[in-house]
Design a protein around this nucleic acid. Structure first.
Lengths: 233, 233
DNA sequence: ACCTCTTATTGACATAAATCAACTATTTTT
DNA sequence: AAAAATAGTTGATTTATGTCAATAAGAGGT
């Protein structure tokens, strides 16, 4: 096998331990998922999946961190999510056009596990609990996209950037201070604004003592202010 | 039963005939869906489902036309879809927080069939083909939302309005000329712009002989031009 | 047919945010 | 360690689009 990291991830058992989704599967179903499964290691900046290419796998990130984004017009990207270990991705397209509908690029050295889409589909058919979980996953993504649609179309820049910072706090780092794994440009690609605007508004937040900034390090001093700015729009 | 229109829709058999989704169900499953099912008639302007309320049903429109929209900030709406007969809605939230994530309002006299969410969930568990179709439905919506995200955040007004007109042509009326069931304000709520901007850009399109307009009647003269404007952004 | 209320149009003006440009700081490569 | 590339900051300027205001045209109700 290629690029398998030593003793890690001998089988899907490890995902069974880590991802709630896999704990629903029987031994037999786990071995179906395991068949033809492979792991690949990526350097920072490498593409894990490319929007528009043929979607034959679902992926689980097992190490590192990646960005999931839509490739839009004139090379402009819209980052939808940061991916951390044990997060499943690659889904949309599985039951329709068999294409990936977004790209995923490693932000740091990462490892991703590739599971054959056919096997996922098979297990969905045999295990209603798993099917339900996939639907739940799908529904959650829909809801997140609805929120994003409102944020990006109806809020102005401070509100949009506040949403991005609140997302990083609540969904990614679970901590009011963190080191950004992304650039100002990428913060802009999450909030739909230019890197210059990101700089300006971060400064603004800092001058209002909402944030403490130092390069890539962010410390949220007044979470409530960010929430208020997010709500106000 | 309340508000049932005479001999129509005695049972789910009618949906069986009309909606490809229901044709996957056995007699038994159809009767599960049929249990507790009811139909309600709505006048133009009446709310069929209200965003944020408890989601206990999935709906199928059996007559009329409705708009499906997100209620955003300061009463600003974002229309995601027009609903025609035999279109299923109410899904997102079914497997998560049991809330409706959007509102649906009748644009004209309409009838909607309400199917108990519990029954839908039950049939999803027993019928893998149906489960797969629901997932397919879900995936298609995701893809549509990705497209919308790019359209609304990366295109300027002519591109966005072109997208809306192309949507009406391709998805709703299947015809280059149609009578708008919505106002300029609502066209704006589909394209994320003000009613004034809608007027101005429609005029522009008309002056370039891309459209012929007369009140609510729209005639697309140069579909290719609209497609080009949509692509250009 | 008349009145009211909503919808549509048009123009003048205000403004949020992008673009452009110059410069500095920080990584990465050689 | 030097050079090159990338990332970040700041200010000046432009532009797409919203807001405001006034008017016109339809639609619905009595």
């Amino acid at each position: 096998m290629i690029n398998i990291k030593s003793d890690k991830c001998i089988s899907c058992e490890i995902c069974n331990d880590r991802s709630p989704l896999f704990s629903l599967l029987t031994k037999d179903e786990l071995s179906v998922m395991n068949a033809g499964r492979f792991e690949v290691h990526f350097e920072a900046g490498e593409t894990i999946v490319k929007q528009g290419t043929s979607a034959n796998h679902m992926m689980v990130l097992t190490q590192g961190i990646a960005k999931l984004f839509l490739e839009g017009i004139d090379k402009r990207n819209l980052i939808l999510d940061l991916i951390l270990p044990w997060k499943l991705f690659g889904g949309p397209g599985l039951f329709t056009d068999m294409r990936y509908h977004y790209s995923v690029v490693a932000l740091q050295e990462s490892t991703a596990c590739f599971i054959a889409a056919d096997n996922v589909r098979q297990v969905i058919r045999t295990n209603p609990d798993f099917a339900e979980s996939i639907l739940r996953h799908c529904n959650r993504n829909s809801a997140a996209n609805f929120d994003r649609l409102i944020s990006l179309t109806q809020k102005q820049m401070p509100g949009r950037l506040a949403d991005t910072l609140l997302y990083l706090n609540a969904e990614i780092f679970h901590n009011k201070s963190f080191n950004l794994p992304i650039t100002r440009l990428e913060l802009g690609e999450m909030s739909n604004m230019t890197k210059e605007s990101v700089t300006r508004i971060l400064k603004e937040f800092e001058s209002e003592a909402i944030l403490k900034l130092e390069g890539k390090s962010v410390n949220i001093l007044k979470l409530e202010s960010l929430q208020e700015i997010s709500l106000r729009g």
